[in-house]
Nucleic acid binder design. Structure first.
Ligand SMILES: [Mn+2]
Ligand SMILES: [Mn+2]
Ligand SMILES: [Zn+2]
Ligand SMILES: [Zn+2]
Lengths: 135, 135
DNA sequence: ATCCAGTTTATAATTATTCTAAAGTGAAAA
DNA sequence: TTTTCACTTTAGAATAATTATAAACTGGAT
């Protein structure tokens, strides 16, 4: 994703492209592969890779704004902190609890043959599969 | 599960059956259906249903001890607090994020036809399916 | 150039959980 | 049955992740 696209992406989702948002967006979205991170890990990586400083609150604000705009998704993994994901399509995960590492599984790599129907009055929003790993 | 079984359960897992543990175990395990809870919700329910008082730290200690002994499992759901589950068998969940409600799905209600192989050097520990619900 | 709603920031507040260390207790041993 | 002590409970302090606050700043419309 090129810089111009980053600006477009921000503007088209009603996010003013501030210095901080553009830098964070470049860091998150200008890459080939899915990136899974916590606010803490993102903060550390940003400190290393860029010269600017970001208040921690800004990182929280930005990540939540990106999530609300649909540019990031949240992944539920065991543990205390929240994980985010640059892959916002419907997909699944391998999870290695020893390293806290998430690995994407494309939706079509998992085929479910049988699934119960939703409880009365409710509908199925989506199905998430976690494959927990060991060594 | 009867009171005698509760005592047996505790002793056989090396847990001294203290007043607090027995009361909490009775509350958790003397029921027909699976019970999903957080430490906070358990604390509130215990205050209502019993006359004894429990330090919050005791509830944390006890729940963790029960989990370590294999009498409880932990369920990962979106949100800040940790959910526990009296169903320690391999099973899946419906999850209603609006009510934060978990509903059990028996393992044999879900049949997976295709699944990717584990990344190099790693093995699959287990597969967990979450069916997210909406209204 | 001016202005202002939206944004960033430092810091305080909140929330969930864990730690600490003193007091209490189940049950083994005397 | 008393004594003993490792294990447990407890109140409160500490920690860690996240959110709230409110003052300073800034992108971009006018
Ligand atoms: Mn989590
Ligand atoms: Mn959680
Ligand atoms: Zn992912
Ligand atoms: Zn369950």
């Amino acid at each position: 994703m090129k810089k111009l696209d980053i600006l477009k992406k921000l503007r088209s989702s009603g996010l003013r492209p501030t210095k901080q948002r553009v830098e964070i967006a470049k860091f998150l979205f200008e890459r080939e592969k899915t990136f899974h991170f916590t606010v803490e890990s993102l903060d550390k990586l940003l400190s290393k890779k860029t010269t600017s400083k970001f208040a921690l609150a800004t990182i929280y604000n930005t990540v939540h704004a990106f999530k609300a705009a649909g540019h990031l998704s949240e992944v539920e993994v065991r543990g205390n902190k929240t994980y985010f994901d640059t892959n916002v399509s419907n997909h699944h995960h391998f999870y290695d609890s020893e390293t806290s590492e998430l690995i994407d599984i494309d939706a079509n790599e998992v085929v479910i043959q049988k699934i119960p129907k939703a409880p009365n009055g409710k509908k199925i929003k989506n199905v998430e599969v976690f494959i927990n790993l060991k060594n």
